[in-house]
Computed example of a mutant assay.
Amino acid sequence: MAEEIIVAGWMDYEPGDRGTMLEALVELGRRTREEETGCLDYAMTADPTDERRIRVYEHWTSRQALDEHFTTPHIKDFRAAVAGLSRVGVSLTAHTVTTSRPLR
């Protein structure tokens, strides 16, 4: 297995901004999964117990695929669409995965 990358963590937004951010993330996620062959999974979801928090999970075929993601037109469109929103906290970590096994 080649080294894959998993990005995991959370982002916090002002409660009034989280819904707008989630709407923008739906389109970003759709385009990322459809248009980027290096994307294995891409999910941003509302935390059901915290009105500010969005949980982040991304799975990439390589560091290069993740790096290229940040240069795509849909990332530029997304950043422009959410530029006025107030992020109040973030904790994201990129993990390099060298082995995996299915859980049963």
Rank of each mutant, 00 (worst) to 15 (best):
E51D: 12
G84E: 13
R31E: 13
D77H: 05
L40I: 10
A83Y: 02
P15L: 07
G9F: 09
D50H: 03
W10H: 14
R101T: 13
A80D: 11
V26M: 14
T93V: 15
L40Y: 01
R87D: 08
R30W: 03
H74N: 06
P102C: 11
T61L: 04
C39I: 05
A65M: 03
E23D: 05
D50P: 08
M44K: 04
L66C: 09
R33S: 11
K76I: 14
V7L: 14
G9P: 08
Y13D: 01
T37V: 12
M44H: 11
Y42K: 00
R101L: 11
P48K: 01
G9C: 10
A46W: 08
A83M: 02
R63K: 09
E35I: 05
Y13K: 02
T49I: 10
G19V: 13
I54R: 04
L25Y: 12
T45G: 12
T98Q: 15
R30I: 10
H74F: 06
L92R: 06
L28I: 04
A81T: 02
E51M: 07
W60S: 00
R52Y: 00
E36N: 00
W10V: 06
P102E: 14
R18Y: 02
L66S: 02
T20R: 12
L92Y: 08
V97H: 12
L22I: 14
E14W: 03
H59A: 10
V82L: 07
T61Q: 06
E3F: 07
E68N: 03
V97S: 10
A80F: 07
Y42G: 03
V88P: 00
H59Q: 07
